[in-house]
Amino acid sequence: MGAGIRRAGPDDRAAVVRLLDEAFQHDPVSSWVLPDEARRREVHHLLMAAFLELALTEGHVDIMEDGSAAALWLDVPADPEDGDDDGPAQLRALVDPDNERVEQIAHLTAAAHPHGRAHAYLMLIAVTPDRQGGGLGAALIAPVLKECDRAGRPAYLEASSERSPRLYERLGFAPLGEPLRLPDGPLMYPMWREPQA
């Protein structure tokens, strides 16, 4: 772990959900999934809480000691077992039952996800809005990428804005295939990072 970074645990749930909610409230993908702004303010935190639980169960969460940034990682095996086909529907039922986009985003990202090699999946990285652009995100994920390099393990993510792929390219990620187009919505940019010497 880098200086000022620690592994999150169950006691950090509320603080990390608040951070994720704040950081992604106006993200293009969150705005597509929950297009009504008032409804997004009501239920977006439930979506972020579901992602956090998945990371705590199937990966890990790193946070800055001061709570200004958090990264949610999943450990993806080379040949994952068939997932829970009801997972996207359960997510929709938990977050916003009348909104098919909650379920749709889960199906679309799962279909775009690469298989065949074990990898670290950066599911979400959040930085408080007043600290964005200052290098906190890169500092937060650098220790995991160094560990990936030592282990010979690739990493994967989906960038959710037009400018973020350039930031990830500086960390060794490269575009992976065509962008994922959300129906009548924004693009997501799958990116892959081979381990580096």
Rank of each mutant, 00 (worst) to 15 (best):
L124I: 03
R117N: 07
L136K: 13
G116T: 10
L122G: 06
A118M: 07
R131E: 09
L108Q: 02
L122Y: 10
R131D: 06
D130I: 02
M123W: 09
P129T: 10
H113Q: 04
I105C: 01
L122E: 09
L140H: 09
Y121W: 10
A139P: 00
Q104R: 15
G134S: 10
Y121I: 10
H107D: 00
V127Y: 15
L124N: 11
R131I: 04
A138N: 01
H107Y: 13
I105F: 01
A106W: 00
A110N: 10
Q104E: 13
E103M: 13
L136T: 08
G137P: 05
R131S: 02
H119S: 06
I105P: 00
E103G: 09
G116R: 07
G134D: 08
L124D: 05
L122I: 11
A138E: 09
A112D: 10
M123C: 04
H119W: 03
Q132M: 08
V127E: 12
V127F: 11
G116V: 09
A112Y: 01
A112R: 13
A126M: 05
A112C: 06
V127W: 15
Y121K: 13
V102Q: 06
A139V: 12
G116L: 04
H113E: 10
Q104L: 13
E103P: 01
L136E: 08
A126H: 04
H119G: 05
Q104I: 03
D130H: 15
I125D: 01
L122W: 03
H107M: 02
R101G: 02
G137Q: 08
V127Q: 06
Q104Y: 13
A139E: 12
A110L: 02
T128Q: 12
M123S: 11
D130S: 15
R131H: 12
P129L: 10
D130F: 01
R101M: 08
H107G: 00
G116N: 10
A118S: 12
A112V: 02
H113S: 09
I125C: 08
L136W: 08
P129Y: 15
L136Q: 11
G133H: 15
A111K: 14
V127M: 05
Q104G: 01
V102F: 07
I105L: 15
R101C: 05
